[in-house]
Amino acid sequence: KYLVLALYDYQEKSPREVTMKKGDILTLLNSTNKDWWKVEVNGRQGFVPAAYVKYL
């Protein structure tokens, strides 16, 4: 498993997404889509914009 760092705040806009705050450390679950990565944060799984996170 990889960890990624939230570069920006992101507010979920659909039930498939998750909210994150700048500085959050997220567990990367799937990065096959170049635009949306599946992550786990605070016990929830969902998608965030790939451009908003970077590998640690």
Score class of each variant (00 low, 15 high):
residue 23 G to A: 03
residue 9 D to C: 04
residue 25 I to Q: 06
residue 49 P to A: 02
residue 48 V to D: 00
residue 7 L to Q: 05
residue 55 Y to D: 10
residue 48 V to Q: 00
residue 31 S to V: 10
residue 55 Y to Q: 15
residue 39 V to W: 00
residue 37 W to H: 03
residue 34 K to Q: 11
residue 48 V to L: 03
residue 35 D to Q: 12
residue 41 V to D: 05
residue 9 D to I: 02
residue 42 N to M: 09
residue 33 N to P: 05
residue 24 D to C: 05
residue 22 K to M: 08
residue 50 A to Y: 03
residue 56 L to R: 05
residue 56 L to Q: 07
residue 31 S to E: 11
residue 55 Y to V: 15
residue 24 D to I: 03
residue 8 Y to P: 01
residue 42 N to P: 06
residue 22 K to R: 12
residue 10 Y to D: 00
residue 3 L to H: 11
residue 17 E to H: 06
residue 37 W to Q: 01
residue 24 D to F: 04
residue 38 K to V: 14
residue 9 D to Q: 03
residue 25 I to C: 06
residue 20 M to Q: 02
residue 39 V to F: 00
residue 7 L to A: 06
residue 34 K to H: 12
residue 39 V to S: 00
residue 33 N to T: 07
residue 33 N to E: 11
residue 24 D to E: 12
residue 30 N to L: 08
residue 1 K to V: 12
residue 13 K to H: 09
residue 33 N to K: 06
residue 47 F to H: 05
residue 45 Q to E: 14
residue 42 N to I: 04
residue 16 R to E: 15
residue 5 L to R: 08
residue 42 N to L: 08
residue 10 Y to N: 01
residue 4 V to E: 00
residue 35 D to R: 11
residue 33 N to Q: 11
residue 3 L to Q: 11
residue 15 P to M: 08
residue 1 K to R: 13
residue 1 K to I: 14
residue 2 Y to G: 15
residue 26 L to S: 02
residue 32 T to Y: 11
residue 25 I to V: 13
residue 46 G to Q: 02
residue 17 E to K: 04
residue 47 F to G: 01
residue 40 E to K: 07
residue 3 L to F: 14
residue 6 A to R: 02
residue 47 F to I: 07
residue 40 E to M: 09
residue 41 V to E: 03
residue 6 A to P: 01
residue 35 D to V: 15
residue 31 S to R: 11
residue 52 Y to Q: 05
residue 37 W to N: 02
residue 45 Q to I: 15
residue 36 W to V: 03
residue 13 K to Y: 04
residue 11 Q to S: 13
residue 26 L to C: 10
residue 51 A to P: 09
residue 52 Y to G: 07
residue 1 K to T: 13
residue 15 P to G: 10
residue 1 K to C: 10
residue 22 K to G: 07
residue 2 Y to A: 14
residue 15 P to C: 09
residue 21 K to H: 11
residue 54 K to A: 15
residue 8 Y to W: 11
residue 38 K to C: 09
residue 15 P to F: 10
residue 10 Y to H: 05
residue 17 E to S: 06
residue 38 K to S: 08
residue 19 T to S: 15
residue 31 S to D: 15
residue 33 N to C: 08
residue 13 K to A: 12
residue 13 K to E: 11
residue 9 D to G: 06
residue 48 V to T: 02
residue 12 E to K: 13
residue 3 L to Y: 15
residue 5 L to D: 01
residue 50 A to K: 08
residue 4 V to P: 01
residue 50 A to F: 02
residue 42 N to T: 07
residue 48 V to I: 11
residue 6 A to N: 01
residue 12 E to P: 15
residue 47 F to M: 09
residue 5 L to I: 15
residue 23 G to Q: 03
residue 55 Y to A: 12
residue 52 Y to C: 09
residue 37 W to L: 07
residue 1 K to N: 13
residue 10 Y to F: 08
residue 16 R to M: 13
residue 40 E to A: 08
residue 51 A to F: 09
residue 6 A to H: 02
residue 32 T to W: 11
residue 26 L to H: 03
residue 15 P to L: 10
residue 43 G to N: 09
residue 33 N to F: 07
residue 7 L to H: 04
residue 46 G to R: 01
residue 9 D to W: 03
residue 13 K to Q: 14
residue 37 W to K: 02
residue 12 E to I: 06
residue 16 R to Y: 14
residue 24 D to H: 05
residue 1 K to W: 11
residue 4 V to G: 11
residue 27 T to F: 13
residue 24 D to P: 00
residue 34 K to R: 11
residue 53 V to N: 00
residue 12 E to G: 15
